[in-house]
Amino acid sequence: MTRGSCWCKKVQYEYDATPIHKVQCHCVTCQKISGAAFTVNVMVPKSAVKITQGEGDLKNYTQQHILGKPLTVYFCGTCSSNIWKNLHTEETEDLWVIQTGTLDGENGELGADVEVPAREGFPGDRAKWLPQVPGLTTIP
């Protein structure tokens, strides 16, 4: 069972599934959502995710992704941590795209080390100063 939470710990969740994808994403939408150069995401079936605390504190916002499809971002209404998102396409409607920085590692492990990316998305939007991570395959 993999667990995660927002910064203030009001929203907590867990999932019991092997991620379908583990992606370091450089798209402009992810940059705007995170305020950073990229996000690291794991995609798991919605049915495998359970909110264990703070469901009432979970807020959402929907806007067009750069791909032209609606994207809904879910975040804590108290601390504003982005927890997961959902790109509304036929292929991804039933998946939560979990932000790995919200994962709670065991024994001091950082959340971003719980699920390590295997792929790199939108490499053309990668910050010019940021090198490609060795070993990641790229997807357009």
Rank of each mutant, 00 (worst) to 15 (best):
71 L>I: 13
132 Q>A: 14
44 V>W: 01
112 A>C: 10
60 N>M: 10
85 K>F: 02
124 G>E: 09
32 K>V: 14
115 E>G: 01
100 T>E: 06
48 A>C: 04
48 A>F: 09
71 L>G: 00
7 W>Q: 14
130 L>R: 07
122 F>A: 14
16 D>S: 15
136 L>K: 03
120 E>M: 14
85 K>G: 09
65 H>A: 14
90 E>P: 02
130 L>I: 08
96 W>R: 04
104 D>W: 03
116 V>G: 02
33 I>L: 07
6 C>K: 08
54 G>I: 02
32 K>Y: 06
43 M>A: 05
76 C>M: 06
96 W>Q: 08
74 Y>C: 06
129 W>V: 04
138 T>H: 06
110 L>C: 05
132 Q>N: 08
6 C>D: 01
128 K>E: 15
65 H>M: 02
112 A>N: 14
65 H>V: 04
9 K>C: 11
131 P>F: 05
40 V>D: 04
80 S>R: 08
7 W>A: 13
8 C>W: 04
60 N>P: 00
93 E>C: 07
114 V>T: 08
97 V>R: 01
47 S>L: 03
129 W>H: 12
126 R>G: 11
134 P>L: 13
134 P>C: 12
71 L>P: 00
113 D>I: 03
51 I>K: 02
117 P>Y: 06
93 E>R: 15
32 K>R: 14
23 V>W: 05
59 K>I: 03
109 E>R: 15
110 L>G: 13
73 V>C: 04
122 F>R: 02
25 C>G: 11
107 N>P: 02
71 L>S: 00
96 W>P: 00
48 A>S: 15
75 F>C: 02
31 Q>T: 05
106 E>I: 09
40 V>K: 10
87 L>T: 04
121 G>A: 15
23 V>S: 09
77 G>H: 04
137 T>P: 00
35 G>A: 12
135 G>T: 10
73 V>D: 01
124 G>I: 06
37 A>Y: 05
140 P>W: 10
41 N>Q: 11
137 T>V: 13
11 V>R: 00
69 K>C: 08
104 D>Y: 03
97 V>P: 00
99 Q>I: 09
9 K>D: 08
14 E>R: 12
9 K>Y: 08
82 N>A: 13
36 A>R: 14
112 A>W: 08
118 A>E: 10
59 K>E: 11
125 D>L: 07
101 G>N: 07
139 I>V: 15
138 T>Q: 12
90 E>G: 13
26 H>S: 12
4 G>D: 09
129 W>Y: 13
98 I>T: 03
26 H>I: 04
135 G>V: 06
76 C>E: 00
42 V>L: 10
5 S>Q: 15
20 I>R: 09
112 A>S: 14
138 T>P: 01
116 V>E: 05
110 L>N: 13
31 Q>M: 04
119 R>W: 07
91 E>M: 11
101 G>S: 09
106 E>K: 08
7 W>T: 11
74 Y>F: 15
29 T>L: 00
4 G>I: 08
27 C>F: 03
74 Y>I: 00
56 G>M: 05
72 T>R: 07
55 E>R: 11
130 L>A: 12
37 A>I: 10
69 K>Q: 14
87 L>W: 01
71 L>T: 08
138 T>R: 10
95 L>E: 00
44 V>P: 01
70 P>G: 06
124 G>P: 02
67 L>G: 12
14 E>S: 13
